[in-house]
Amino acid sequence: MSPSGGRTIFSYCTDPETLGRLAWASCYLTTGKHMGLYWSFLTVLALLAITAPTALLFGFGGAVAARSHFFASRWFGRFYISVVRGVPDIIFFMFFVIAIDQGLEWARHQILCPDWTEPIRQGNDFRVCPAAKLPLSSAPQWVHEVYGFFTAVLTFSIVFGAFAANVLFGAMQAVPQGQLETGAAYGMSRRQTFWRILVPQMWVYALPGLSNLWMILIKATPLLFLLGVEDIVYWARELGGSKTARFSDYPHGDWRLWYFLGLLVFYLVFTKISEALLERLMRRLSRGQATLGATV
């Protein structure tokens, strides 16, 4: 997102052609464009941090709907789970962002501009009243960026929420029937059994599936550039591509290989750390549970 603008970090960077290799590298790696790359690592991490709980929430809703006794919500829950999971995620990424954006603007248009007479669809154009635009066209750039980030989070959450719903659905089924019957025997209502027994007990069954989902989520982030977020792949491509001296102070050949190798290392390290942390979490959750994991 925001590179540091026109400033250079080191004062000697004004004329890079004359510099030695080390000084050149220090200037090259601190250009505003590289700041964009470093910033994008944070963007990806922030997106993961926000998407994971949101997707879990969607998943919880989907799983509850799929278990529901009402035909309509059961049908909706199962449809959501099976359709989203039957289609490659990249297909959703190709058109979801525009769909979400238009959907939100359409809804705001209905609420905010009831007197608007012009049609929203004019030929190919999608026009809502100015007050319904998201974000407002007078909004500063950072608002547009935050909004773009938000639609990306929402897209990821809808897609991965379906996977989470499937895991949670399975986990709810896996909670031993006896535990639920015990609840009933204590005179708990269905609702009480659900919140006081089923939900606390299901996590240990859900965790292996959710850990895998987290790994999947990490590995889906290279597709973020499809959602309008300038992610690490966008910058690696942009920075690695060959530069001519006419348009850059730092001309170089095709360096994409090195940038992508850097990304590879980043993902391997990130996966390794996540694995270790999830392993510890699993051990803590299984304490006192009647599963194989606990007896080991």
């Binding site: 990424f93 058109f95 525009i98 547009h144 960026e145 639609t151 499809l226 309008g228 300038e230």
Partner: peptide, 26 residues
């Protein structure tokens, strides 16, 4: 070449300090 909505903070034009009477053209 793929979709992007534009998240880019790509600097504002020189004449941007004008009063916000008119909405911004993106």
């Amino acid at each position: 070449k793929k979709l992007i909505l534009s998240a880019a903070a790509l600097a504002l034009s020189a004449g941007m300090a004008l009063a916000a009477s008119h909405s911004t053209i993106r």
